[in-house]
């Protein structure tokens, strides 16, 4: 029970940290990291839920696996967009120099 409580409280704390980071930090990489921290916090709560009874419940594990895949795809898409924006800005700066 205490183990479950530790995981749950940590999860909520991480969720708060991530949420704050997403709103407060201006840099896009930091925002993405913050979102990933939020994702991890949700996964942690699910894993804590899985450990509830006498035996371990596999359903939350399946959800976490799916969640990780989605998080990877989302993060990759955001990074690609950030790279695109950076490349456009770089091009503009180069053409201004010449």
């Amino acid at each position: 029970m205490t183990q479950d409580l530790i995981y749950s409280v940590t999860s909520l704390a991480l969720f708060g940290c991530g949420f704050y980071g997403l709103l407060a930090l201006p840099h896009i990489l930091r925002k993405l990291l913050a979102i990933n921290i939020m994702g991890v916090s949700v996964f942690m709560l699910l894993l804590a839920t899985a450990n509830h009874g006498t035996s371990i419940d596999p359903v939350p594990h399946a959800m976490v696996l799916t969640g990780i895949v989605v998080a990877v795809a989302g993060t990759a898409l955001c990074l690609k967009l950030a790279v695109n924006i950076n490349a456009i800005d770089q091009n503009e700066r180069d053409s201004n120099h010449q």
């Binding site: 979102i35 949700v42 955001c78 695109n84």
Partner: peptide, 30 residues
Amino acid sequence: RASQVAALRYALVGLLGSLLYLMGVALLYR
């Protein structure tokens, strides 16, 4: 550039929305 910025913002909002939703799902499953 404008569309990339709009898409990036949309992506962050979308991910945040989904995570809030998933947190709700975790609580419901619990």
